[in-house]
Write a protein that binds this DNA or RNA. Structure first.
Length: 517
DNA sequence: AAAAAAT
């Protein structure tokens, strides 16, 4: 599922790039990279789809670098020849870092090949200076790219390659206007490559309006789940006031590594991060209300392991590649199925195992059911999982009541707690779907580690100092589905791409991180 | 309806 058979060298990638990749442990390309190479090098427009963490960045990055570096008819002049657009500033830094790493041995005459990031929230000067000194590949966010282009500092007339990373997001309503403006500044004759793990049909239809007979390449068969089979998905119903407590217990699970917690709003992200920090966890928040410096600082601290809990809005849902993220927790359910796929895609990358826990609040049941249905998870009503999944239950050490139901955490302030616990939806539990949920997480491996009774770090005591927490509404729960593998081909509009051959399974290799500031 | 993205 992840790899085919050739090496980067065998695919015709030039020595300088092969050497850089090899030094970073990348010798065998991931399936999407190998499938994309021939078409991308030929200059074809294409839509590339592969699951999260399976090497999409280099799938367009390597051929992009190779193509413009090899173009003898149009030697590099320092005017950008390729532009990669991404939805967030942090992803901009990551992608530009990845491309710069792959290009580090390439040279243009007597200078180095240049990749630069162009994004907002930072002073203009450094970016303008870099552009004036000469840039071969630009990686940027729409707003700043447009801004610098309109100011005349970024010349887009020389582009021969345009890439939309997280393409479905880039073509979503919020970004579309900017993308359309940028397209008007780019030469008609250019190669366009769109990549994402999720590509809703309407988006593909829209994409075809500005692409030239794009080939749709998929590393997995269309019917396969967009989620890795190596990621175990759990869904629980949870009451608003219990979420932080539940999470604090999950955070004590044996084997937990770096963990990302997603919220629907910026306020909640900050609140949860603060509460977890108060409880002694090494946590920080990342969301759009923070200054760019704080955003990058938090992400960097998370990358280095200085902190191991990152609470974020969807600003960090896509593309961010951090090794060893073992758990992803949805404190609030995502807006749609694409967001769910991308959020939990922060774990289980490159063949590694991952755990995704979604907490669903009563108010979110209807919306959750839609996501469940869209992804075929088979767990539409978390309320019914209330007393199931004893397995995970033990593993996460989430408290349950005498009847074995996942109950509210034990709190000194028994009054309030008991009152609320009586309201718990004991009733709603139909047994119908229980079989689906019994025991192991839906779609996960039958064998899972046993429980671990880790003591709560700090029981939920009332913090004198902390102000009475304002509660927000929104919750989530339930389990996920397992997944597949393999490759296949997708027939895009007119053209289609051949499926891949046998996929050798190999861990390691491929995509890397790097960010650079 | 939320978040992101230029200032």
């Amino acid at each position: 599922m992840t790899h085919l058979n050739k090496t980067f060298a065998e695919l015709g990638v030039r020595d300088e790039i092969v050497r850089a990749l090899a030094e970073d442990g990348k010798v065998h390309p991931f399936a999407i990279q190998e499938l994309t190479m021939p078409l991308a090098l030929a200059g074809d427009d294409l839509i590339g789809q592969a699951r999260t963490g399976m090497g999409k960045t280099l799938a367009f990055g390597v051929p992009l670098l190779q193509r413009i570096a090899d173009d003898t008819e149009r030697p590099l002049t320092g005017i950008p020849r390729a532009l990669v657009l991404v939805p967030t500033r942090e992803l901009c830094l990551q992608v530009s870092g990845d491309l710069a790493a792959a290009a580090r041995y390439l040279r243009v005459g007597d200078r180095k090949f240049t990749v630069t990031s162009i994004y907002g929230g930072r002073p203009y000067e450094p970016q303008i200076e870099a552009l004036q000194k000469g840039v071969d590949v630009g990686v940027g966010t729409p707003g700043r790219v447009l801004d610098l282009a309109q100011q005349g500092h970024l010349q887009l007339g020389g582009l021969s390659v345009l890439v939309l990373d997280e393409a479905d997001e880039m073509l979503d309503l919020g970004f579309l206007p900017d993308i359309e403006r940028i397209l008007r500044l780019i030469p008609e004759r250019r190669q366009a490559m769109l990549f994402s793990a999720t590509m809703p049909d309407p988006i593909i239809t829209l994409a075809r309006t500005f692409m030239n007979k794009p080939t749709h390449i998929r590393a997995e068969a269309p019917h396969q789940s967009a989620v890795h089979s190596t990621t175990e998905q759990y869904v629980y119903r949870a009451h608003a006031l219990d979420k932080v407590e539940m999470i604090s217990r999950i955070l004590q699970a044996e084997g937990r590594g770096a963990t990302m917690i997603f919220t629907r709003t910026k306020r909640t992200a900050q609140k949860v991060a603060d509460e977890l920090a108060e409880r002694g966890f090494k946590a920080a928040a990342v969301h759009g209300d923070l200054g760019q410096g704080a955003r990058e600082k938090a992400l960097q601290a998370f990358r280095t392991g200085e902190i191991d809990v990152l609470v974020a809005t969807d600003v960090a849902a896509r593309g961010i590649d951090i090794e060893d993220v073992t758990h992803v927790i949805n404190y609030q359910i995502p807006e749609d199925e694409q967001s769910y796929v991308h959020r939990i895609g922060r774990t289980g990358r490159k063949g590694k195992a991952g755990v995704a826990v979604t907490l669903v609040d009563w108010d979110e049941l209807t919306r959750w059911a839609l996501i469940d249905k869209a992804l075929g998870l088979g767990c539409p009503d978390p309320a019914e999982t209330y007393s199931t999944s004893p397995h995970l239950y033990e593993e996460l050490n989430i408290p349950k009541d005498a009847k074995g139901r996942v109950g509210p955490p034990h709190r000194p302030d028994a009054k309030r707690v008991s009152a609320r616990s009586e309201e718990r939806p004991t009733r709603t539990r139909t047994r119908v779907r229980r079989r689906t949920l019994r025991g192991k997480p839906i779609g996960s491996h039958p064998e899972t580690p046993a429980a671990e009774q880790a003591p709560t770090p700090e029981s939920a005591e009332e913090k004198p100092g902390s102000a009475p927490r304002r509660r927000r509404r929104r919750r989530r729960t339930t389990a996920g589905a397992g997944t597949p593998t393999a490759n296949s081909t997708g027939g895009g509009n007119g053209s289609s791409t051949p499926a891949s051959g046998a996929m050798a399974e190999k861990a390691g290799a491929a995509t890397a991180a790097a960010a650079g500031g």
